[in-house]
């Protein structure tokens, strides 16, 4: 429980590609700060947002920080419900193999490593939105 009161369900929706605009990066900063508040957090990547998780980005040439390396640390912040719109991936010619492999360690199962990423379709996304108390859009 946070100091502020009861736990709420927070969903961060990422629908924009990285680097062309700052939204993806500054969204991640909100998620990291928000993790300290111990809310029930989920992330959803849809539309161009799925490009944020593409692995092995080389940003040296554009002179920007590769902020996406931080996604791998989300499991340590207990942010481990990461949903990806499978249709958005398919439309963009991507598969899970193109994305970072995000995991978390389950302390209730002797720190077993588990996948954070869950592929979801439109009905699951609609349900996911319905369940939330607060939705942040980036």
């Amino acid at each position: 429980m946070s100091e502020a009161g009861a736990t709420k369900k927070f969903l961060y929706i990422n629908r924009k590609a990285p680097y062309g605009t700052i939204y993806a990066w500054e969204s991640l900063e909100v998620v990291l700060i928000g993790a300290a508040f111990e809310q029930d957090v989920s992330l959803l990547f849809m539309d161009d947002g799925v490009y944020q998780l593409v692995k092995e980005m080389q940003t040296k040439g554009i002179g920007m920080k590769n902020f996406t390396a931080t996604y791998a640390a989300l499991g340590d912040y207990e942010v481990n419900k990461i949903y990806i719109d499978k249709d958005a991936l398919t439309e963009r010619g991507l598969t899970l193999d193109d994305l970072q492999h995000l995991v978390w360690e389950d302390e209730n199962e002797d720190w077993a490593e588990k996948d954070s990423i869950h592929l979801v379709g439109r009905d699951e996304i609609a349900d996911l939105l319905d369940e939330q108390d607060v939705i942040f859009n980036f």
Binding site: G5, K8, E29, I135
Partner: peptide, 20 residues
């Protein structure tokens, strides 16, 4: 102030409306 103020607004408010 810090981003914590945004999270706190999400926790305290009945609705959060995002304009962007």
């Amino acid at each position: 102030s810090g981003l914590g103020q945004l999270i706190e607004a999400g926790i305290q408010a009945d609705r959060l409306v995002v304009f962007g």
